[in-house]
Every structure is written in structure tokens, then in C-alpha cells.
Design a protein around this nucleic acid. Structure first.
Lengths: 346, 346
DNA sequence: CCCGTCGTTGAGAGCGCTCCCGAAACGTTC
DNA sequence: GAACGTTTCGGGAGCGCTCTCAACGACGGG
């Protein structure tokens, strides 16, 4: 490991070199308003020569800002690693934070009762805000988060109507409706649905969308699953046994659909001739590699991440100016549209 | 967004409440050595009552420690999201850091020339150390990192012999040897190899391992690829066209192997009867879902992450005690063993 | 009985920065 | 030309913490 470099220069050192006061250097470093041009130049040069970098610790000690936000991923392992969902979202978040010179502190919960640790960290005031992925109805985390501006990824599912929580989600219900309508448009009548894990609002919303179109659907056409490939396979087998006459399947996400496709092939059903299949998410590595390529409902996951970060940062900015900028400053939730991507499977 | 909570208590406040000095409270908060038991108790209670949490900024200002390490992922998008490699490694790192009360600051590079930003951040002394994934031979990042203890994920590939860099890697070469030997043991003679991206040491090492066993291999049996599913498909087609008599394939990783399997099926070759296939990594979501299930070389990715963090933290501890603990304190690189996991494909 | 020693506590300096405020320099206006 | 803004800059306090050092008893040995 490389050795620690020599002593880092301080504001004081820069001031001395530029022949000005600490205060002036500080002003220049923070934008340079109210400092005359020649001085600005002199200070800039001194900063350059000494390779000065502000000490963030000293800075946050007085400003009480940290230029850092926490990203909390409180999912059980399964989903996090089964599909690149979070990776994409992180990418979006990272881009937005970088653009605002903020750092990303990643908190992964380890096991069931690790929430307290995360809550304590957030309460400790080490970050300016938090982006929380907590899509499960029974998740205790939201209740534990106090005193930290928070934006949720996906509509949180607590019972008392998401009491003013800010979240970013995609139009799960609308997207599901569009998918099922498309199947109807193809002349399919026995359209099955493999649900996601119903302790997540996304799964519930997609099911609702399905029901919106299939108002008098045969309940036997609905099989509960869990967003996993194995779950998709299981559900597909179940459905085929129960309703051999089904002619279409709307799966709650792509990897579930991929599992369904495997079972359909195994059972000798042709896709899309015998059974049309539609997924959800449009995870490219999945949808483009299935056989046949998967028709699906696209949501722009990276964009959701970016938007979450933007909402949070905006809320943070709002609390700086003026005394009590009021609730007008708090941003509200956003629901992003989805689009149907037609490939070969439906 | 929830409102910021009220003013946080300071050391001073705790001291006042416990009727002791700031120094004593500090001692108790940091372990309590050299403070008599009754006082410790009184302070502990005051801390509890006020809900005191140390201000990390103030603390690092004087200690120059941050209890945070940066994780730098400088991969182009493709690989990061194609397989859950980094997600698993992050999990391992996170576990180890959590156990040492350190935070994880995630830095994703955005695009080609974002290295400077990362280098600047690391040089800024905001973190105690860095874990860097930079597996490409031409990556400028390692050269830019100065003055921050760093552990690399995967053997860095710079030309001048990894000048003392500390890294954690798996035994790519040995694992490849074992895989190819296994194929030989199955009686296969025309064993092809689909390489990974050869600007990464892991790909080079696996190729070397293949060559170790196939000392006089027909060069036509080696096809260069890039670790991607699409690349695997392309390479497999190429190989089948060039060497129709091949009876086995060792692919540089699992998703490449999955691509190869698709092409083999498409071309009517039975696996493993006509062509045996082995992958590398043992990414469960991939290997267990291919048809047939994939024989592969397992590396414990999460463990690699954990080990990287442990190495870094150990190096950090070493620099605290005594004046000049010397180079004996610097940890050295680790190469983890691999194991062959037999499934149906070979 | 005095003095050195040890263990325990508190006072105070200072980490590097921001920001308030007052001084200085420079117009502007009547 | 005096009185009064208006910038522009520096002085200095202080953010919350750690850590050195001195003070202070208690205690045992000479």
C-alpha cells in the first residue's frame, strides 16, 4: 500500500502564499463572489501551486453540511443479485450526485435486524439525506428513520397511506394495463398473470393493472410468485396444469418471464404462437437473450435513480435559503411512465 | 421529506449533565479507559438520556481518521451490469467494513475521463483508504492514486510488474487448468477456449491456464471474446465454423458459456454428449438456469470482497501504533483457490 | 512525617474551516 | 467639500471534538 503523502496544505498556507487573509481564500474557494479579479487570480494560483484541497471535515463542522447522501438498500439478498436492478439505479444516483459534488455512502443491511444500525447512522447526522429502497410492506426501516430528509425508491407500502413520504416509482399499474391490453389486441382471451412478491407495492400495482383490463378474469389464471426465475418456473407449471388452455402470460418481471419461457419450451408450447408472453422492466441482458426475445414493459431504471437523487438534493437546497421556506419547498413524489417494447414473444 | 430534528447534543452538554469535564466524557465515549467505574456509569447514562451521538466531522478534524473507505468501480457499464459480480463483492466488502464501524463510499466512474475526479477525491483525504476495481491493462487510474492506502480487486495489469500493489485475486490460472484437465479426463481431445477480454489479467491468466494443459493446442481452437453473452455467442459460432470437430469448450466465464450453450443448441449439438462445456465464476443465477446446468470453476466472490476490506483495514491499523511500524506492517496480496463445480454440462 | 509515584480528572489549546462584523477604500450626492 | 452609501477585505470567534499536560489526592517507602 502506498504511503500517506506529506502534510496537506491548509487555507492558512494558501493565504500566506497569496498574501491575503484566510477569509479571502475561503471566499475564492467557494465561488469567489465579492473578491476583485486580480486577487481571485492570485489566490487561484496559490491553490494550484500548493495543490490545496479543502478539508471536508473542518468544513462540515461549521456548515453542518456533508455533501454526502446515504443510499440504503434493505433488500434480502435474493433480488439484489438476481437482476441488475439496483446496479442500474445506483448508476443513475451516482451520476446525479456527482453532478452536485455529493458523495454516495452505501449502506447494505446485513440480515434481518440490521435496521437499527442503519437508523442510528442516519440519525447521527453524517449525511445530508437518504435514498431508501424499501419496497416491502412489513419493513420496519421507514419507521426508524428520523430527522433525515428521505426519498424512497418505489412507493412505500405502509398501511396509513404513505403519510407524505416522497418517492419515485414507475407507473406499474398503467404499464401492466398496457401489456394486458396488447395481449387482448392480439386476440388472446385466456391471459394468465404470474405476480411478483405481493409484499411489494410494485407487484400489487401490476396485479391491479392486470385486473383493470381482465375485469372478470378467471381467478385460476392468477398465480402468485416472487419475482425470481425459479418462482417463474414454478408458477408457469402450476398455471399450465391448472389452465391448459391459456394462450398468454403476463409476468410481473422479466426474469420471471424468462423462467416461464423455459417451462413453456419444456412443455412443448410455442411462443408466441401457442402462448404469448410479456414481462416487465426491460432488463436488456435478460430480454434480449431469451428465446424468443421478450416483449416487455420498459421502465427507465437509471432515470428513476437519477430522479430520486435530484428530488433529494432539491429538497436539501430548499432548506438553506430564507427562514422557513415552508412546505412549498418540499418536492413531491414522481411516477414515471412506462412503454411497451415489442419483441418476438408477444 | 421529514423535517430535520432539533439541535443535537454535544459533548459539552453530556459533560454538564453528568457533572464532569468534556475530557472525561470523551474518554468514556472512546472506550472508557482510565476512568473510574461510577463515573463511567454516570456518563453512560447522560449519553443515553440525551441521545448523544458523536459528531464525526469534529472528530476526524482532529484525529485525521474518517472511518470510511472508498470503493472505486472503474468498469465500463457493460460488465458491471451483465453479471452480479460487483454486487456480490460489494456485499462482502460491506460486511467487513460494518464489522469495523467503517463506512462505504461508492465511487462509480462516469465515462472515460472521469478518473481525474476520482483521483482528486481520493487525494483529498476524505477516506482512510480505497478498494479499487480496475482490471484493465490500460487503466490510468492506478497511476493517479497517490497517498491513499489502496487494495486492488483482481491483479492489476500494469507492465512494470505490479510494483508492490496489494491485491486480492482468485487463482485464475490454476482454476482454468483444473477445468481443462477435467475435460481431458472426460476423453475430450478437441478442446476449444473462448477467452475473456484480454485487456484484463483474469482473462489472460485463464488463457494461460488453458495453454498449460493444452501445450500443443491447435491455435484455431482459441477464440478471443469479451466476457459478454453476445461475445460468447459470436465466438462459439466462429469456432464451430472453423473447427466443426471440437468436442469441448472452456469459456472464460459463465455468461460467455451461457451464450455458447445457446449457439450449440441452435446448431443441434448436444451438451454434453457432443460438446462438453465449462464456464468460470459460478454465478448461481446463471449456472443453475442454463440448459443443461453449467459445470464451472467457482470462485468465492463475496469472500474476495471481504478479504479486500480486511487487508485494507489491517494496513490502516498498522500505521497507528508505534513510530514507523515499518514495511513488516504492510499486508501482502492474496490469491484465493478455486474449485471445480460439476453439473451437467461437462 | 516527608517525598516520590501512580492513577484519575479537568483546563486549555488547537484541528481547518466559515462567517459575522468592522475597517478601509472608494465613489456619490447635495 | 462634508456626509453618506458601497464594495472589498481582514480580524477573530467558534463549530465539536481529542489530546497533552498539569493538578490533585491517595498511598507506600524511606
Amino acid at each position: 500500500m502506498t504511503e500517506q503523502s506529506t502534510e496537506r496544505p491548509t487555507l492558512e498556507a494558501v493565504a500566506a502564499r497569496a498574501g491575503v487573509s484566510r477569509a479571502t481564500v475561503s471566499r475564492v474557494v467557494n465561488g469567489g463572489d465579492g473578491v476583485r479579479e486580480p486577487l481571485v487570480e492570485r489566490v487561484r494560483q496559490a491553490v494550484e501551486e500548493l495543490g490545496y484541497v479543502p478539508n471536508q471535515a473542518a468544513r462540515s463542522l461549521v456548515t453542518r453540511r456533508h455533501d454526502a447522501v446515504a443510499v440504503v438498500i434493505a433488500e434480502p439478498e435474493t433480488r439484489v443479485f438476481a437482476d441488475p436492478f439496483f446496479a442500474l439505479q445506483l448508476r443513475g444516483i451516482s451520476k446525479e450526485l456527482t453532478a452536485h459534488d455529493s458523495q454516495l455512502v452505501l449502506l447494505l443491511t446485513e440480515g434481518r435486524d440490521d435496521h437499527a444500525r442503519v437508523a442510528r447512522y442516519l440519525a447521527g447526522g453524517h449525511v445530508d439525506g437518504a435514498l431508501v429502497f424499501s419496497l416491502h410492506l412489513d419493513d420496519p426501516l421507514p419507521g426508524l428513520i428520523r430527522g433525515v430528509p428521505t426519498v424512497y425508491g418505489g412507493r412505500p407500502g405502509w398501511s396509513d397511506g404513505s403519510r407524505g413520504a416522497v418517492y419515485v416509482d414507475c407507473d406499474n399499474r398503467g404499464g401492466a394495463r398496457e401489456a394486458v391490453r396488447h395481449l387482448v389486441g392480439l386476440g388472446r382471451r385466456r391471459i394468465a398473470h404470474i405476480t411478483g412478491a405481493l409484499d411489494q407495492t410494485s407487484a400489487v400495482d401490476r396485479l391491479d393493472g392486470y385486473r383493470d383490463v381482465m375485469v372478470d378474469a378467471d381467478p385460476k389464471l392468477i398465480e402468485e410468485s416472487d419475482f425470481s426465475p425459479a418462482g417463474g418456473e414454478r408458477a408457469m407449471r402450476e398455471l399450465l396444469d391448472r389452465c391448459p388452455d391459456l394462450d398468454a402470460v403476463f409476468a410481473a418481471n422479466d426474469i420471471t418471464a424468462a423462467g416461464a419461457l423455459r417451462v413453456l419450451r419444456e412443455r412443448g408450447r410455442r411462443v408466441p404462437e401457442d402462448v404469448a408472453v410479456i414481462g416487465f422492466d426491460d432488463m436488456l441482458p435478460v430480454t434480449e437473450r431469451t428465446d424468443p426475445p421478450l416483449t416487455t414493459v420498459r421502465q427507465d431504471i437509471e432515470d428513476m435513480g437519477r430522479l430520486m437523487a435530484r428530488l433529494l438534493l432539491r429538497g436539501l437546497d430548499r432548506r438553506t435559503p430564507g427562514p422557513e421556506s415552508g412546505p412549498a419547498g418540499t418536492p413531491s413524489s414522481v411516477v414515471l411512465p412506462t412503454t411497451l417494447v415489442r419483441r418476438a414473444s408477444a
